[in-house]
Each structure stands twice: as structure tokens, then as C-alpha cells.
């Protein structure tokens, strides 16, 4: 089952840094967009060069009244076409299809204090969370690491909004975000949220664990774009269709391309919605999700089709 979709018009497209483009999306057909909570993302369908790409982007502000969504897209050097399309082709006035918001990175409403940590474009959900916490009058602090103030999206806006609750770390100015100095001094019942590159998430969690933080109080937005790999064949046993998964497309995208609807939510290996039974694998399953346990991976009978692939010849799925 996939999410409800809405047609939206790009009403503002602004380069907030040389590599980040902010888009404001408003309903194109009169159907109001549902409100969105802080931390939510939307799946944007992009028709780029004859290919259909569906990318997840965090909403950069809570949209409690509905009305409009804002996303910020980093131009990725390893773009599969999505971010390049947003940066080079998309114009104000163009229409897009977006999914109803999904929140896999929600605020913990019983936290006594919220520690927000963002690296680079990871600021997108974190900015929305800071905004919501500020509105609620909750206790929070925001740590934002950027290469330089010019390269970091929304630096000035965020400093104006969050003032003394925010610290900006610019590597250009030799400022380093040292999480191990932040985590030991938080009250019991604090929750920590981090969004950024995988190695940053790992490092932040390691520091928090070393300081004795319980696992349940650590939250990360883990989803990332599917990386490509060698092509392989896929056969769908129930629908009787087959295709080849290309070098630069995901298994889920290939399945959608041949007109089979598969369930998904995050398209980043985090939520578990796209789990699929493997009937046969002529080759080795290349698990790239954050959902399956090591035991489930070893069992070899399940695959998360949004991220994972086959290293081999043919995969047969129960779809």
C-alpha cells in the first residue's frame, strides 16, 4: 500500500546556498495538503529524463495548518538524476506529485529536554523539530555542523529563531562539534536526535552510549538514497512479470517501472514497509537497509526492496 498523493505546484524555488535549493510546494488542484508534524518527510515523484524517480525529502518546517510544504534539496555529486533535475530543470510554476507526509523521525513528546544535532543537509528535519519545540515552549538545544556558513542552509534564519539555544559549528572556522562534551551534561529523560551523514550518526551514537545514554533515547533519521550496483534480473512470481534492475535504479523502482505496485513508505531502508519474501535467489542478497536484524539477513528469505539488491543473476520475489 502506498501513500495518498497530491499534485503540487512549485511556487518558490530559491538557491539558499550554491548547492541547496529550497522549494515551496502548494496544492495545484485545490485539494488541501494535510498538515505535517515535525520530522515528517514526503516522497516526491520526479519525471527526470524519461525516468520516474521517487525521492524522500524531509519537510523543513512543520506545516500545522496544511497549505504548503517546503523541502530543501542538496545537489548531490553522486545524483542518480533527482537532485540534478531539481537544481537544473525544475522551475517555479512546474507541477510535481508528492505523497502524504510520513513521520519516521518524530519528536518524543515525553522528553524532558531535546538535544538536536544536524550535519549539513541533515538540518532539514532538525529545523522542523526545533521550530515545533520552540512553538511548544519545550526545552531544547540545537547543534548544527556545516562546512562554512555560506554552504550551510538556513544558518542565519536558524540563528535568528533559536538564538542562545543554537550553536553553529563551521569547519571553515576550525569549529568542531564535539558531541562527547555535550551528552554527559544533560538531565535524565533527555532525548537526542541526529540527522546527517551515516558516519556522523554512528559517531554521535557512540559518544552518547559511552556517556551512558539509553538506546531508547537516541533517534536518527537514517534514510539515504539507494546506491546503484551491478544489474540483475528480477522475476515477480505472483504477477508473472520480469525485468532487469539497472545499474542506477533500485529494485523497487524497477518493479514500479513494469507497472507492479509494491508497498513502501520511506524508500530509504528504515521503515520496513517494503519487506518482501524472497522465493529464489541465484546469487547473494546484498542487504543495504537498517531494518532487518542480523538473523533475518542470514535467513535470506526477506529483502527490503527499496535499498537492497542482488549480487548475482536472478532474484524471484513473492510479488
Amino acid at each position: 500500500m502506498s501513500a495518498t498523493r497530491y499534485t503540487v505546484r512549485v511556487t518558490e524555488a530559491e538557491a539558499v546556498t550554491p548547492h541547496v535549493r529550497r522549494l515551496r510546494l502548494e496544492p495545484a488542484d485545490g485539494a488541501a495538503l494535510p498538515p505535517a508534524s515535525a520530522g515528517a518527510h514526503t516522497v516526491v515523484t520526479l519525471e527526470a529524463n524519461g525516468r520516474t524517480l521517487r525521492n524522500s525529502y524531509s519537510l523543513t518546517a512543520p506545516s500545522l495548518a496544511g497549505g504548503a510544504y517546503e523541502i530543501a534539496v542538496l545537489r548531490s555529486p553522486t545524483s542518480r538524476g533527482g537532485s540534478r533535475f531539481v537544481h537544473e530543470r525544475l522551475r517555479e510554476g512546474d507541477t510535481l506529485s508528492v505523497s502524504a507526509p510520513v513521520n519516521l523521525f518524530p519528536l518524543h513528546r515525553l522528553a524532558r529536554h531535546h538535544v538536536l544535532v544536524a550535519g549539513g543537509i541533515g538540518i532539514t528535519p532538525i529545523a522542523a523539530m526545533a521550530e515545533e519545540l520552540s512553538r511548544l515552549g519545550a526545552s531544547y538545544e540545537l547543534h548544527y555542523a556545516v562546512r562554512s556558513e555560506a554552504a550551510g542552509a538556513f544558518c542565519r534564519d536558524l540563528e535568528a529563531r533559536h538564538a542562545s539555544r543554537m550553536r553553529l559549528y563551521s569547519s571553515e572556522r576550525q569549529e568542531r562539534l564535539r558531541v562527547r562534551e555535550i551528552v554527559p551534561h544533560q538531565p535524565l529523560g533527555s532525548h537526542l536526535y541526529v540527522c546527517g551523514p551515516q558516519r556522523m550518526i554512528d559517531a554521535v551514537f557512540a559518544d552518547a552510549r559511552a556517556a551512558g545514554w539509553p538506546e531508547a533515547n537516541l533517534h536518527a533519521e537514517r534514510f539515504e538514497a539507494p546506491a546503484g550496483g551491478d544489474p540483475f534480473a528480477v522475476r515477480l512470481a505472483r504477477s508473472g512479470k520480469s525485468t532487469t534492475v539497472g545499474e542506477h535504479e533500485s529494485l523497487l523502482e524497477a518493479i514500479e517501472r513494469i507497472g507492479v505496485e509494491a508497498p513502501y513508505l520511506c524508500r530509504g531502508g528504515a521503515c520496513g514497509e517494503c519487506i518482501c519474501d524472497v522465493i529464489e535467489a541465484d546469487g547473494e542478497l546484498d542487504h543495504r537497509d537498517h531494518f532487518l536484524s542480523p538473523e533475518e539477513r542470514r535467513a535470506g528469505d526477506k529483502i527490503m526492496i527499496c535499498m537492497s539488491r542482488l549480487k548475482g543473476r536472478e532474484l524471484v520475489l513473492d510479488l
Partner: peptide
């Protein structure tokens, strides 16, 4: 529970 945790807006 696993099913409900992924319940979607509008569905």
C-alpha cells in the same frame, strides 16, 4: 502493532 506503527495519513 508493527502494522499500526506504519499507519499512514489518509489511509
Amino acid at each position: 502493532l508493527k502494522f499500526l506503527l506504519n499507519l499512514q495519513i489518509g489511509r
